[in-house]
């Protein structure tokens, strides 16, 4: 399909008003980066969803990491964007400044080398992520067992998308279609969204991360509004069944659990915990459920549910900004509030 035809259709669309949620934080980023809101008719509204793993991690989890990094002979390893997520009182970056042992890594697999080089240090990996990242932790566990490495544990805050999307739909969020997360779908396959599309009678479009790819998905969602259709606009890397090798490895080490999403509360079946037989690799991940707000006026919860736009939060830009984030959506570069602010979206 010709890009110009798609652009013309989306700009001139004058039918029923549609509200389309991009669940994935990388999509929120790409939508801003390509200036997509300026290419759409006023009848097409985009809503940013809860798809930034860092943003939905509850404060108790961060607090636990902060405790751990200060224990003797212990090092907390993490992806960079978790460093500044607020716990109930402070973040990992500040804890590091106070002498906590925190190390930023690019890949969890770096721990294999680190753990072998420093056998007396206990490494704790801050294992956050969605379906895309969990298989990497499964690979790490596989290697730890194969190489008999005993000084690495995971503190997990792993989330899965379908139960969360179900929760959003059931909570009455005003959504008429979903841009389904592209890289989650690489692992899960696009069929995973079929039960949800059927149940709520709304379309799902799996999208890539280039401007054209997102426009194609939006076109599909507007055209197929009201139908429970699942469309895969990212066949380059997404199939109906997904990466089954990765799924099997995840199922070997992890089992379904309830999980707390920051601002949204506990959602049954929306998380993963290490299976009991691998408990020796768990740094105490269960029950890190407390979720304290840094600032009572912060409305991250409603932003994450798509009930308000980031600009409608009273703290946005005035009190809450990337240098002084009051809520998780401003901390991560994938967070809706961060994206709205740095791209001046209105």
């Amino acid at each position: 399909m010709n890009l110009e035809t798609i652009k013309k259709y989306l700009k001139e669309y004058d039918g029923e008003e549609v509200a389309l949620m991009e669940v994935c934080g990388s999509h929120t980023g790409a939508i801003s980066k390509f200036g997509i809101p300026t290419l759409l008719s006023k009848k097409i509204r985009l809503i940013s969803g809860p798809g930034c793993p860092v943003c939905v991690t509850p404060s108790a989890y961060i607090d636990r990491l902060i405790e751990l990094c200060k224990e003797p002979d212990t090092c907390v390893a993490t992806f960079g964007d978790l460093m500044r997520v607020p716990g109930s009182e402070k973040n990992l970056s500040l804890a590091k400044g106070e002498g906590g042992n925190v190390r930023m890594v690019y890949s969890p697999m770096e721990l294999l080398t680190l753990a072998k080089e420093n056998p007396t240090t206990n490494y704790i990996f801050a294992a956050v992520g969605f379906e895309t990242t969990t298989p990497v932790y499964a690979l790490l566990l596989e290697s730890l067992i194969r190489e008999n490495i005993k000084n690495v544990k995971l503190l997990t805050a792993l989330k899965t998308m379908p139960a969360a999307i179900n929760w959003l739909c059931a909570s009455g969020a005003p959504i008429t279609g979903f841009i389904a997360p592209g890289h989650v779908s690489v692992i899960t396959g696009s069929d995973i969204f079929k039960p949800l599309a059927d149940k709520y009678g709304i379309p799902f479009a799996v999208a890539g991360f280039q401007g054209e790819e997102i426009l194609e998905a939006l076109y599909g969602l507007v055209k197929c509004q009201g139908s429970g259709k699942v469309m895969n606009f990212y066949p380059k890397v997404v199939t109906a069944e997904g990466n089954t090798v990765a799924q099997k490895k995840v199922a070997t080490y992890f089992e379904e659990s309830s999980a707390v999403w920051r601002g949204m509360g506990a959602i049954e079946g929306s998380g993963l915990l290490l299976r009991k037989e691998y408990a020796e690799f768990d740094a105490g991940s269960a029950d890190l459920n407390e979720d304290k707000k840094l600032n009572k006026a912060c409305r991250c919860d409603q932003v994450l549910m798509g009930k308000i736009s980031p600009t409608e939060c009273p703290l946005f830009r005035k009190v809450c900004n990337p240098m002084n984030p009051q809520g998780a959506c401003m901390v991560s570069e994938e967070g809706s509030c961060h994206q709205y602010l740095v791209n001046n979206r209105r």
Binding site: M83, R84, E333, L341
Partner: peptide, 8 residues
């Protein structure tokens, strides 16, 4: 804005 940390 901020320091541009590598992302997950």
């Amino acid at each position: 804005q901020g320091e541009g940390l590598p992302r997950i």
